[in-house]
Amino acid sequence: MTWIAALPMYNVTPALDFEWRAWLVEVLRRVKPACRIVEPDEELHGFWRRPNLLLSQTCGYPLMHGLHEQVRLIATPCFDAPGCEEAHYASVLVTRADAQFDTLAACRGARAAYNQDDSNSGMNVFRHAVAPLARAGMFFSTVLRTGSHLGSLRAIADDRADVAAVDCVTFAFVNDVMPELARRVRAIGMTAASPGLPLIASGTVPPATIEALREALNETLEVRPDRAKRLRLQGFSVLPLTDYERIGQLENEARAAGYARLA
């Protein structure tokens, strides 16, 4: 079997994509199975379920909606970013720099943007934040699906939307490497926190290889602290799957409040 690996989640710019790929090369060099770094040639739900997947990163929402039955958790990165606490993260509630909104409550009747229907950081925690404010399941005038956190930020900056929830790690990277875009938006709050985006492997990967991967993750931070700083990586935590039940809890709380979808 030819093992494959990819890190598709935090490649905000080509330069960051290069940094993540270089780090992944270093990790894989320390693990015995030969592995090829690939660009996913299919939608990510299919890619994450490949039986020869040695290492990738997923979102907690699809993880808890069936993916956990086919993968092993390797570790969860701990990022140095506002909104992160160890392996947990929140999303930043963002509006335009010159918008009149200073709180989420003030956004009643505004235009919302979100990245994907199966995103914890862009949809699920956003829904949870809005739920107590909604009336008869409604809060916004329109809701725009953008396809990515960058797409949501650009929609706000270009006045096609007024508010979005953006993964705080992505938002930190945007402030680092896309200052022009960062200047056109501003934060007005934070969502509830939940476990961060986990690194995963196929359920076919042997336990000994999972342990080797965990050791390699931390070794790469020690030997290249400069790269770790650029990637905002502080370390890794091995969380049990039960910690990710927090994501379902947030979903259930929104549904119980009568707010099953962004609207």
Rank of each mutant, 00 (worst) to 15 (best):
T2R: 13
W3T: 01
A5T: 07
P8C: 12
M9H: 05
P14I: 10
A15E: 10
R21L: 09
L24S: 08
L28E: 01
C35S: 01
D41W: 06
P51C: 05
S56Y: 01
Q57V: 09
L63E: 04
A75V: 11
A90Q: 09
R96V: 07
D102A: 15
D102T: 15
A105D: 11
A106K: 11
G109A: 13
D117L: 14
D118L: 15
D118G: 11
D118F: 15
S119A: 08
A134F: 03
S148N: 11
L150H: 05
D162V: 04
D162Q: 08
V166R: 08
V166P: 01
F171L: 10
F173L: 14
V174L: 05
N175C: 15
V177C: 12
L181N: 07
A182G: 02
R184Q: 12
A187E: 13
I188G: 06
G189E: 06
S202Q: 00
G203A: 10
V205A: 03
P206M: 13
P207A: 15
A208H: 04
E219L: 13
T220Y: 03
V223D: 00
D226Q: 14
D226V: 11
A228R: 11
R230T: 07
R230E: 09
L233K: 05
L233F: 00
G235R: 11
G235W: 10
L241S: 09
E245G: 05
G248F: 02
G248H: 12
E251W: 01
N252P: 05
